Simulated scan of single mutants.
Amino acid sequence: MNLIERYIFRVAAMAFLATLGVLTAVIWLSQALHDLDLITSKGQSALRFLTITGMWIPSLVMVIAPIALFIAVLFSLNRLNSDSELVVTAASGLSPFGLLRPYALLIVMVAGLCALVSLWIMPASFNIMRNAWTEVKSDFLTKIVRPGQFNSLDSGLVFHYRDRGPGGELLGVFMLDRRDPAQVSVYLAENGIITKIDAQSYIVLQTGTIQKQDKGSIPAMVTFDSYALDLSNFEPKLYGGPLKPRERPTWDLLNYDVSDPYTRDNVGRFRADLHERFVSPLYALAMGMIAFAALGTPRTTRQTRGLALGGATLAAIALRVGGFGVAGALARGPEAVPFAYALPLLGVVGGVLYTFRFALAPLFRGARLVPAEAR
């Protein structure tokens, strides 16, 4: 790139980074406030709080980056045009392709960032968040919950122990799990201890009973000498149970086990999450090209750009809303897969054609003027 192109790239890149940083910080802060009870009621450190809430950032970046790119391209082009820099560069011989080159580089870089985040970083961050929440639950049971108190760990989940023995042993353990209205479970044990097995946190109950009652049936009781409960099963539903599609590596989504009951019951979610990871970078390409197509043509300060700004904004909103609609359709059936990729690609092609409409016009005009018998 020459000096002018490097200058244009720097202006657009700085606008993108500023927009991405501000939007991500604002949305992350609103999300972090929901988890503030990590410090206030669960006694966790500020570092643990930042670790858990910080794992939301990759998923926010994946959604916000195309929008930030759209705003940055519009802002930088409008600024360059307002300062008459676009007019001067065009008069000095900078072609539309030359003007597009620094923006194309930025658009491809942002698309690469979205691909990196959606395919690798985001699944890893959600997995780290899940494990961190399990650690919080373990710490909460052993360090925060006081003996003799009935503590609500989640809606419908009550934990109680009589006293604490040597080595952190919990004496007289009682657990009531009625989160599922169709089944109520009661755990009673003489003692229990928190331990880790294969990097997973468990509470191992000693000498007790499990009482389960399905709705409308007679209660069933099972006695045990030792019983290990995976603490991840007592997490809020957002983090409990098998790994969610968003928590799994992309390779696992490409080769998921159809014989697994959870996978079989949620095959639509697996399909939707997989294709959204590959589609995400395409929206960065589409958003960038729509913005450049709207304001990439130099205009004098007397020519209004409001209509172009409004049209680009409406096109971007329609594209993103359509993308969310297709994402919902992906979970319902595989018929929506072609539309998931066609929608952002339509935005890219439309932006390119509109950008070079004046250069392409003679070709179409000439094709129409050629007699049919001469073709």
Rank of each mutant, 00 (worst) to 15 (best):
F97T: 14
N127R: 15
L36M: 10
W120V: 03
L141E: 04
P102T: 03
T40A: 11
M55D: 01
T51K: 11
L60I: 14
T89K: 03
A90M: 00
V145L: 05
M109T: 07
A46G: 07
S92D: 05
S82N: 14
K137D: 12
L100V: 08
I67Y: 09
R101S: 02
S152G: 12
D139I: 03
A132E: 13
A132K: 06
P147S: 04
A132S: 15
S82L: 12
S76I: 08
I71M: 10
A46S: 10
I121N: 03
L141T: 11
R79D: 11
A111P: 01
A72D: 07
L99P: 00
I39G: 11
F150K: 06
N151Y: 13
I27Y: 14
F75S: 13
L23N: 04
D37E: 08
A32P: 04
D139V: 04
F97W: 15
P66C: 12
S92M: 10
Q149M: 10
T53M: 01
S125D: 01
T53P: 00
Q149Y: 10
T40F: 08
L47I: 14
A90N: 05
K143M: 09
L33F: 12
W28K: 07
S152R: 10
E135L: 14
L116W: 13
I52Y: 01
D37L: 06
A65R: 01
Q149G: 05
L106A: 01
R79K: 15
G98T: 02
V26E: 15
S84G: 06
V110G: 06
M122A: 11
I71Q: 00
L69Q: 05
M55R: 01
L119T: 05
V87K: 06
L105P: 01
S45K: 08
F97S: 15
R146Y: 08
S92P: 00
M129N: 15
P96H: 06
G148T: 11
A124W: 13
L69F: 04
G54L: 05
L60R: 03
S125K: 11
L113V: 06
A104N: 09
S95D: 13
R101P: 00
R146L: 13
W120M: 07
G54S: 02
L113T: 05
S45V: 10
I67E: 11
